[in-house]
């Protein structure tokens, strides 16, 4: 089995003035191709940090990670990846269309291919009408959408989304869910974090729960959560049983 995401004994610690913070410990994630994988956990559990390691923003203190079989430290690993950050922001002096042109060029897409790709992406995120306005005039949700469009410009095989529905209205959330389903139907892999567990339940095939920098549960949603049980109540049970007594973690 070739994994789309594979981490081995991944650990990250940060040096702060107060000492060393172990943000991730011994993370062994395995994500199969064509799956929608929900990555959930309380605030500060290490979801964003894990994604940052996968994208090469930070090098792991211990262990290793591969995307589509390529070590994440190589830029090549990101050729077929799309990423939407937690607080997406971009060059506000560009128009939406110019942003997509820029990111398309970073992937080496040009000319007619690029134009066609941009038009279809704008359509998909419902931004065709506002594509030629400066991003500085966009609302939070519009910004989220254009950032999502730039994340998908290269038709990625793996899409990593850090809280993709944050800041979106119910219609926007619905669109994101539809988009994730669309990606899966085209054989893409989606790895996303979310605090909206009802949403995770709706779209995920597999999931992992991260608590305090450790993966405490990983598997197919159907195997993990018993029929009739809600993911939310399962999550609560797991987190409560894992949280050390008197923990004041954020």
């Amino acid at each position: 089995m070739s994994w789309v995401i594979e981490t081995e004994k991944l650990g990250v610690s940060f040096q702060t003035r107060q000492g060393t913070v172990a943000a991730l410990q011994d993370i062994n994630l395995k994500v199969e191709p064509g799956q929608v994988f929900g990555f959930i956990g309380p605030n500060g559990a290490g979801k964003t940090t894990t994604m940052h390691v996968l994208l090469g923003f930070i090098t792991p203190t211990t262990g290793s990670a591969r995307l589509l079989g390529t070590d994440v430290r190589l830029p090549l690993a990101r050729q077929h990846i799309g990423f939407l950050p937690e607080h997406p922001d971009t060059y506000r002096f560009l128009s939406g269309r110019e942003l997509l042109q820029f990111t398309g060029r970073l992937f080496g897409i040009r000319g007619r291919d690029l134009r066609r790709r941009i038009d279809s992406m704008l359509e998909e995120v419902d931004m065709t009408a506002t594509a030629d306005r400066r991003i500085s005039t966009y609302s939070r949700g519009m910004l989220q959408r254009i950032c999502l469009a730039q994340a998908l410009i290269n038709d990625p095989d793996l899409v990593i989304l850090d809280e993709p529905t944050g800041g979106l209205d119910p219609i926007g959330r619905q669109q994101i869910r539809a988009m994730i389903a669309g990606l899966r139907s085209r054989g893409k892999t989606v790895f996303f974090s979310s605090h909206e567990l009802s949403e995770v339940e709706l779209v995920c095939d597999s999931m992992a729960i991260l608590v305090g920098g450790r993966v405490v549960v990983q598997g197919k949603l159907a195997d993990v959560v018993k029929p009739g049980q809600r993911l939310e109540s399962y999550f609560m049970d797991v987190v409560r049983s894992r949280a050390p007594a008197g923990a004041t973690h954020a």
Binding site: L55, G56, Q79, G82, F83, P85, D89, T90, I160
Partner: peptide
């Protein structure tokens, strides 16, 4: 925070 968008590209 645009560095994250940029470095996520190849």
């Amino acid at each position: 925070g645009t560095i994250h968008v940029l470095l996520a590209k190849p």
